[in-house]
């Protein structure tokens, strides 16, 4: 499968973006355990704003749900939404790895 890229975007840029997220997501478990609302929110807020520019609007939506859960202070929901975001990132990696 050859996923379509937004105009002007290269596959190298997308892969670099995915690598950066993978590295960031490594610290998510610890942030949830510490209930680091500010740190989690900042990370998810950025992904919400930039994922679509790298051809991953679904990942942006997942991040938006994390922001909403953090804002609601519902840590069970935060954990669930963060898991969904991590899964989505894995799907995106697989999608772009196959090209």
């Amino acid at each position: 499968m050859n996923p379509s890229l937004p105009h002007g975007l290269t596959l190298d840029q997308v892969r670099k973006y995915l690598d950066n997220r993978t590295q960031e997501f490594g610290g998510l478990g610890g942030a949830i355990a510490r209930k680091d609302a500010a740190g989690l929110r900042m990370l998810a807020h950025r992904i919400k704003g930039n994922a679509a520019l790298y051809g991953m609007p679904e990942l942006g939506l997942c991040a938006a749900r994390v922001v909403d859960a953090v804002d609601a202070g519902d840590w069970a929901a935060v954990s669930e939404k963060v898991d969904a975001m991590i899964s989505r990132l894995a799907e995106e990696r697989a999608r772009f790895a196959s090209t």
Partner: peptide, 15 residues
Amino acid sequence: DDAEFAERLVDYYTA
């Protein structure tokens, strides 16, 4: 402060 967002924007409009 989001360097990746800025990079995309600058790339798009520089072209």
